[in-house]
Computed example of a mutant assay.
Amino acid sequence: MELNNVYIELCDKETEETLSKPDASFLSKPITYLKEHQNEFLYIESPSFETFKTDSLSLEVDDVFKTYMVLLGLKVQKKHASTIKSFLNENLHGGEIKNFSAMFSGDEGLWDLNIPIDMMEGFQETTIEETLSITSNFMTKLLSALEQNN
């Protein structure tokens, strides 16, 4: 995935305070950075994310399940609830517990999605950039499923 005009913040999970604003080269770091700094999350904005109907996303390690998570706001209508939830259930692989959440926010008119990246097809603990690519592919497939069911 080619990211254009990327904006990055490393933030404290508890306070959401910005700890630093690294440049795009930070994305070549190993994704394990987040396991080594579990009190932090990575916030990323890029116009490139528009391809899967979001402006930004966050990456973090879940405090309970210790899985890598992507959190984003998906700009699609509420009527897509069953397709979104079915897609997540069918396309996340792994244990019995699929620790995702998908809730529609009427105020913002978008879906708040928390998805375990560990359960996405092809995920390996490589770079942050590669993790973003896996996430992008997954979201593109989700949007394709939404179009097919429309």
Results as ranks from 00 to 15, higher is better:
Leu88Ala: 12
Glu50Cys: 09
Ile31Asn: 00
Thr54Asp: 03
Lys75His: 06
Lys75Ala: 03
Lys85Arg: 15
Gly95Arg: 02
Val76Arg: 02
Phe87Pro: 01
Gly94Lys: 00
Ser105Arg: 03
Leu110Met: 04
Ile31Gly: 00
Gly95Tyr: 01
Asp55His: 07
Ser105Tyr: 08
Leu72Lys: 03
Thr54Lys: 04
Thr51Met: 09
Lys98Ala: 06
Leu57Glu: 08
Phe41Leu: 10
His93Met: 14
Ser105Ile: 07
Lys85Asn: 12
Ser86Gln: 06
Pro47Arg: 01
Glu45Asn: 10
Lys66Arg: 15
Phe104Glu: 07
Ser58Gly: 11
Thr51Trp: 05
Asp107Asn: 11
Asp55Gln: 12
Ile44Asp: 06
Leu71Asp: 11
Pro47Trp: 10
Tyr43Ala: 12
Thr83Gln: 05
Glu40Asn: 04
Met103Glu: 13
Asp55Ser: 05
Leu92Glu: 01
Glu96Lys: 12
His80Ser: 05
Glu90Met: 03
Ser58Pro: 06
Lys98Pro: 03
His93Tyr: 15
Val64Gln: 14
Asp63Leu: 14
Leu72Trp: 08
Tyr33Asp: 03
Lys53Glu: 03
Asn39Cys: 00
Ile44His: 12
Ile44Lys: 14
Glu108Met: 05
Lys66Val: 10
Gly94His: 02
Ser82Pro: 04
Val76Trp: 04
Trp111Glu: 04
Glu96Thr: 04
Ala81Ile: 07
Lys35Met: 10
Lys75Leu: 08
Gly109Glu: 02
Val64Ala: 15
Lys78Pro: 05
Leu88His: 13
Ser86Thr: 07
Tyr43Asn: 12
Ser82Gln: 10
Ser48Ile: 09
Leu34Thr: 03
Phe100Ile: 12
Asp107Cys: 11
Val61His: 10
Gly73Cys: 12
Glu96Ile: 02
His37Ser: 04
Phe104Ser: 02
Glu96Phe: 03
Ser48Asp: 07
Ala81Tyr: 00
Leu42Tyr: 01
Ala81Gly: 09
Ser58Arg: 12
Lys85Ser: 06
Met69Ala: 15
Lys75Met: 05
Ile84Ser: 07
Leu88Asn: 11
Glu108Thr: 01
Val70Glu: 09
His93Arg: 15
Leu71Ile: 14
Ile97Gln: 06
His37Ala: 08
Asn89Pro: 07
Lys85Gln: 13
Lys98Trp: 09
Asn89Met: 14
Tyr43Gly: 08
Gly94Arg: 03
Ser105Cys: 06
Ser58Val: 11
Ser82Val: 13
Glu90Val: 00
Leu34Gln: 00
Ser58His: 10
Val76Tyr: 02
Leu110His: 01
Leu42Ile: 02
Asp63Val: 08
Phe49Thr: 02
Ser48Val: 12
Leu92Asp: 04
His80Tyr: 13
Tyr33Asn: 05
Glu45Met: 11
Ile97Trp: 07
Ser46Thr: 12
Glu90Asp: 14
Lys75Pro: 00
Met69Asp: 08
Ala102Asp: 11
Glu50Lys: 15
Asp63Thr: 09
Thr83Lys: 00
Glu40Gly: 04
Phe104Gln: 05
Val61Gly: 00
Asp62Gln: 14
Tyr43Ser: 13
Glu90Ser: 07
Ile44Asn: 06
Tyr68Asn: 08
Thr51Phe: 01
Phe104Trp: 11
Phe65Cys: 00
Thr32Arg: 09
Leu42Glu: 00
His37Cys: 07
Ile97Glu: 06
Gln38Asp: 08
Leu74Ser: 03
Gly106Arg: 09
Leu34Met: 12
Asp55Val: 14
